[in-house]
Design a protein around this nucleic acid. Structure first.
Lengths: 366, 366
DNA sequence: CTCACTAGCTAATGCGTATTAATCATGCGC
DNA sequence: GCGCATGATTAATACGCATTAGCTAGTGAG
């Protein structure tokens, strides 16, 4: 309040002839009585490849210290032809106001792994109206200023992505994306995880299991169904078309009557997919309650993912989506691509999460 | 699963002779049939100072677009001392695992305002152990790649900051920070906001009010106390030392007995500061409940900030910390500094938030 | 017809560092 | 004493862009 910020105190000696007032390698060289090249070699520790007398090294290091030399990152990166920057592009704002849809958990992993690998992150936002070079279809082209770019969310326009990939620009998409061939991606292994959930139920003795899913063609949805069916198959259970209840609007289509119909038909376990909205699971949960039933006594419930983190309810059986780990994996893959290496395994395993919502099937007639 | 990602399809020609495969101005120039200098002039919009034929400009722009040209930030910065990037540096992870301590709300504003001002954001992570250029004094020096840098959290080492400021590098600290003079910052105006809360209570008729605060020397804490005392003073209320209850451990120090002692002494309203941990407020809330009291009937409660967003409890009187606006203000200040202008007003107002936890003081004896 | 002058463009240079080829003693074997 | 490998250092150059001092052709004035 009483300290209106000011700047540029006298502090250090103004300049030598360079713009910044900060010492350059040339000044260090002068002070140490050597050439700029020698300074560079010593400070970069390249003394094993190009030998420098120990005494000279000492002088250089001392000169650098007394002058307070710090390398200019811009020059360093220019000379090295590497920015050490990875782009992060999200078509919607990277930090959305609605935390539910946030990429936050991914970013935790992205940031951490990027730091680990020695990269900084450049944030690009597709939605930013106004501002730097935004707007037109070339907006995506901006990401080229980084060494490579990570794409979040499925809204990145295919054509632009295609262009980047074709140009050989390192790109990794977070979330499976097969329709653009040549595009690298990392994603959660929903298939294996879903299969595992079914296996768990089957091991408990369930013989008829139904999957409730939304009417969506997203890989995240179809993968879960694949895994579910695969799980049934491997357990020797019937995997007919009526094992999957698919509806565009679970909230209204999934009535208590439908539920009772299943139970009467011998179904003892229900599995819901988890999506952005969580509609399938929420509808299932609500309908079970409405029907006066409760898990795991009357039936077993599982969710192919993590239920929305509501109040302190009992944990639901399912699997966790390792978002942080996904972010890290994406960065690792991107770094590999930047280095010209081959992309590795794109799938990240989802750990099974035991819960209190499943149990053995109820005995037919108490 | 069946699509192991591959890369580098034949697509486009790999490169011209530059190391990165990314097009340079030289390539744009060749394609447009002009010189590199012309490309630079056109793309920088310098066509008012050095006239370029409209037709030539068109050709250059088109060539740049078809090649997907994007300027190299390092080269830009090296040559012109600016590259339209702002750094964001947090000594701890920018995206912490503990969401409570998150800078997220700030970043929303930072991202938005940066886009508005035409800047890209670079996330520098200081927390990286291992990896490139971590550790030493060089860690902070990386931020010089950007035109200026925003610092989050009070863990940024003072010596390094000092150095940046002395070198004339534009720096803005998010959160008040006076001990480093010359360092610009933006912060919430806790003083005014706290005063306003007190004024609100006084207007309702409260004559004895006590502040519960932690034993902390952070500006955020002392500012609140200042504002609190100022508020008492302006309302003509006693602002003696016993108006402030300061303890290192509110959870254990704030017992129901202490609370009843206050009430017996005529205290009718309690105000808690809000901190990272929220310890003061949580302790107060719990103790009031333990004592079998409830607000606003038995006494009035207010918090100097926003209580941790718990379950659907009734809103507590206090003020909101405009984190998003703070982030935006910080960016605006940083942009001003980069432009060589003077830093403006560092304080952002916190809007008063009416709630259901205060009311008129209870009548002395029912 | 020449000169000054302008519009339109380019050659050249610098930014600060990393890297490589070249230089220069120096000692060693013969 | 003459090459010759070796060790220590430096000159030179590239990195990609911005900037400035020219250079050239054309135009109107004198």
């Amino acid at each position: 309040m009483e300290t209106p910020p000011q700047r540029q105190r006298p502090g250090r000696a103004p300049a030598q002839g360079n713009r910044t007032g900060r010492p350059r390698q040339a000044e260090v060289a002068r002070l140490a009585g050597v050439s700029q090249a020698t300074v560079s070699l010593v400070l970069a520790g390249r003394t094993d490849k190009v030998s420098i007398a120990p005494e000279t090294q000492r002088r250089v290091l001392e000169a650098a210290r007394t002058l307070g030399y710090v390398p200019d990152p811009a020059a360093r990166r220019l000379a090295a032809a590497r920015n050490n920057m990875l782009g992060v592009f999200s078509f919607t704002a990277t930090f959305p106001t609605d935390v539910r849809h946030s990429y936050y958990p991914f970013l935790v992993g992205v940031e951490c792994e990027a730091a680990e690998q020695g990269y900084d992150l450049v944030l690009f936002t597709g939605s930013s109206t106004g501002g730097a070079g935004s707007g037109g279809p070339e907006a995506l082209s901006r990401v080229r200023l980084a060494d490579g770019c990570l794409f979040l969310g499925r809204h990145a326009p295919a054509a632009e992505l295609r262009r980047l990939v074709d140009d050989g620009f390192p790109v990794v998409h977070l979330g499976r994306r097969d329709e653009l061939d040549g595009l690298s991606w990392v994603g959660a292994d929903y298939i294996s995880a879903s299969r595992e959930v079914v296996a768990h139920l089957a091991a408990l003795g369930h013989r008829k299991i139904v999957l409730v899913r939304e009417d969506d063609e997203a890989p995240a949805s179809t993968d879960r169904e694949h895994g579910f069916l695969k799980g049934l198959e491997e357990a020797g259970l019937p995997a007919g078309p009526d094992a999957v209840f698919r509806t565009a609007d679970p909230a209204s289509a999934l009535t208590p009557d439908v539920l009772r119909g299943w139970l009467d038909a011998g179904v003892t376990a229900l599995v819901a997919e988890e999506t952005d909205t969580g509609a399938a699971w929420l509808a299932l949960e609500r309908t079970v309650a409405e029907a006066g039933l409760s898990a795991p006594d009357d039936l077993s419930l599982a969710v192919l993912g993590s239920p929305p983190p509501e109040r302190d309810s009992a944990p639901v059986t399912g699997f966790d989506i390792p978002r942080t780990e996904l972010g890290a994996a994406a960065v690792r893959m991107l770094v590999a691509l930047v280095a010209g290496e081959e992309a590795q395994e794109p799938l990240v395993a989802c750990p099974f999460r035991p819960g209190a919502s499943v149990g053995p099937p109820p005995t037919p007639a108490g």
